[in-house]
Design a protein around this nucleic acid. Structure first.
Lengths: 196, 196
DNA sequence: CACCTTAATGGCACTCAGCGCCATAATGGA
DNA sequence: TCCATTATGGCGCTGAGTGCCATTAAGGTG
């Protein structure tokens, strides 16, 4: 027997993250995020409201999809950076690559980010998501600089990297003709110019 | 008759922002922010729950006090900057001065910021407050650089200034012996070093 | 086939933030 | 005394989120 994708045991799942996301985004687009209730999403998926909360800890987390898992990749990519260049270059490379999406999924990503960046409720929630992202960077910088725990640099780099990323995204959403990674590079250049 | 502080007319207020803040902070400290209900605060103030929502649009806004009003000062101070220096210097000066508090109110300010920066619920809500703060900076930069509305620099400067401010605050909260304005300066120096 | 274990579902009831509605209270003025 | 003005606060509702628990749908074992 081939060790088939073992269905462990127990009652099979009635849905999955992708199906919920799909139904939810359709409703968000039709009625807006705040006007869509978890009950409506549950009905659209064909599942109980209670079950939704087992897949996403909150309604605000639905637009973020598998963000938390993607942080693991981000962490690993940072860890595998060569130690030759500067810390700033390594961080910048990984931040850009973290946001370099397959053209096939780009449209979906644009929809996602538009929702997140234009809905106040989600703007607020994103602070928590961003916090986890910043922490990944801060941990890397701390390791690379063998900084004391109280060294302010790691946290600062996390915050500034986020600042660059979010303002790049805002520009990218306004200008669909630009490539996201190019916008990142341009923002970085602008910041360097501004500060000198 | 001296034009006495005209009490306009109508039923007098039963409380004010300061009294609510005071009662709320006491409860937040005793039980934590999330475990404190609006009803408890209302009882402590001696006022109806419904009335609280006329003074603060949400529970999350209570720790921010009169932040929205202070943005007006911030805007005016930026507007009154000399045009001699660089935009970066003007922004930096105003950001530092915005966070230069009277020693008498410093302890209160530290309590406030500790609460905001360590409570996840409030971290999330702060994104909305920060957004308004960033907009003030972005508007100033746009004016000073006569930027096209699509110019990315104003938004970028807003984001990066915020990044500096928040990481400075985190450091200041960890190190009570430091002066907040000094921490700002140090963060700015560190950023310049990091990027060059 | 009956039975057990495992794991997911989903209903129910509850708390709490927030909001719309509106009757009521407390003031100054005519 | 009556009126206009303005704040209060009670009531009832919606909707997110949670704890609890009975139920369902598998796989495995004798």
């Amino acid at each position: 027997m081939p060790p088939s994708p073992t269905r462990p045991q127990g009652r099979p799942s009635a849905t999955d993250h992708a199906a919920i996301e799909h139904a939810a985004f359709r409703l968000f687009e039709e009625q807006g995020f705040d006007n869509t209730t978890m009950e409506q999403i549950a009905d659209a998926v064909g599942v109980g409201r209670r079950t939704l909360f087992r897949y996403f800890p909150s309604k605000n987390d639905i637009p973020w999809g598998q963000f938390d898992e993607s942080l693991r990749h981000f962490r690993e990519q940072l860890a595998s950076q060569s130690l030759d260049g500067t810390v700033a270059d390594a961080v910048h490379r990984c931040v850009v690559s973290f946001n370099d999406f397959d053209p096939a999924t780009l449209a979906q990503h644009r929809t996602r980010m538009t929702l997140i960046l234009t809905t106040p409720t989600l703007q607020a929630h994103s602070a928590l998501k961003y916090g986890a992202w910043r922490r990944v960077i801060a941990e890397y910088v701390a390791r690379r600089t063998t900084a004391a725990p109280s060294d302010p640099l790691p946290a600062l780099v996390g915050h500034v990297s986020l600042a660059l990323a979010v303002s790049s995204y805002q520009r990218w959403l306004d200008h669909p003709e630009l490539r996201l990674t190019d916008v990142f590079e341009e923002s970085m250049r602008q910041l360097r110019t501004y500060l000198s």
